[in-house]
Design a protein around this nucleic acid. Structure first.
Lengths: 223, 223
DNA sequence: CCCATTAATTGATATGTATCATAAAACAAT
DNA sequence: ATTGTTTTATGATACATATCAATTAATGGG
């Protein structure tokens, strides 16, 4: 494993000493997942911290046959940090929404480095803080806004944070959109169509284009 | 400040060296808050980590004049950890629901100790993990269950985690109960009355007694 | 102790969203 | 191509919960 490769993805690894990097990388495997494959499963043992090199994944809670998608992860992100010190049980199920490449780190070695390297430990805490902030933002959207606001939030989220463009191809299904907005598939479809008819976005199958960011933001704002 | 006093509250401080403890405690103040007083405010600078010595506090998000209570904190808990590395902005508003006593630590010194003391750092990460798990449990309740399930969850939460009894005096208002369940005050009142009429709980003003834990759990389960 | 304010309660009504049913379209496998 | 399966779509209906309105009860300050 080439350290330079990793630095391109993120500054996660910059704080590691040569020795720490060596130990980490010699216990790491690289795995390719196909679209739809499960990467890790809520409730199972968490021996692994993942680092995303390619693709988009959905991170979700399974509950009574329903899924609540908490976030989508992508290149440069660590996945599994929040299950590290929770009796080693995975809090979330992670699944690939397209072909993905992930590096699987051994959690014990990550923990070891946390203890030995203050910069790295700070980095981890900082990530956990950011993750919690993101989750709360979502929780607020899900609980305080009605459907139009929630769908607007979802579209904004995907455009800004995941695809970094106002014009992108959805790799997720309408069902996923619904699970991300805490609603039914039918309702999600209806609202998206409404947005389309109102010329706020343009949806044709999997293709989505934002026409008016202003209107989307207004919808997000008024809930 | 007597170190023994603190060890009674929690094992938070056991990992500190004498010197670290001295530095921390010499920069700490103890504050008493009356019922209803705001302890810290969402959006303000987070220079402080609080340690609860007495009382119950509500931790909530303010959003468009509405409040969403994320959790209640109590004796032995640290408050503010999740805002530590988030550009130092308070993520939550914290208010006292009864007379409370809190110690206010300087966040820079806490950070300093995190860097110097691996056990302490692990403890912090572990707390953040637990906090996120708790938040997700709540988010799941709020988004996937309907009112009966959510109110049942709230009653169970208060009985088990806060008051540690099936028979307690609510220090929070019905409005707070509603804000904890993401509903309107009227709906919260109605459901609680329903529980009362169905002999699941007994509510008389501020006094609440659980009659059937089994039924409460069933309600929580079926959502 | 009384008045003002806030909290708790109850009923009637409105509304957002889920659910059910059904169909068309897209996709995958043989 | 053909078939089965999943995804997307749309309409009709049911229902949970918010909102509005009005009343009573509790609380706290002067």
């Amino acid at each position: 494993m080439d350290r330079h490769q990793f630095s391109k993805f993120s500054n996660w690894f910059d704080s590691l000493t040569e020795e720490q990097w060596k130990k980490l990388s010699s216990n790491t495997v690289c795995i390719t997942y196909n679209k739809g494959e499960t990467i890790c499963k809520q409730g199972s043992f968490a021996n692994t911290i993942f680092f995303v090199a390619k693709g988009v994944q959905k991170i979700y809670k399974e509950y009574h046959g329903q899924n609540l998608i908490v976030k989508f992860s992508q290149k440069g992100e660590m996945v599994g940090l929040s299950s590290m010190y929770n009796s080693n049980i995975q809090q979330y199920t992670v699944a690939s929404v397209c072909e993905s490449v992930l590096y699987a780190f051994n959690v014990d070695i990550v923990k070891e480095i946390i203890r030995a390297n203050a910069d790295f430990a700070e980095h981890i805490i900082s990530c956990l803080n950011a993750e919690q902030e993101e989750i709360m933002e979502r929780t607020l959207s899900l609980t305080q806004k009605q459907l139009h606001g929630r769908l607007a939030d979802a579209v904004i989220y995907l455009a800004r944070r995941i695809y970094r463009s106002d014009n992108f191809t959805l790799q997720v299904t309408r069902r996923d959109m619904a699970d991300f907005c805490g609603t039914s598939t039918e309702s999600a479809i209806r609202i998206l169509k409404e947005f389309h008819d109102d010329k706020i976005i343009q949806v044709e199958g999997k293709h989505l284009k934002i026409i008016s960011n202003e209107l989307l933001e207004r919808l997000s704002e008024i809930g």
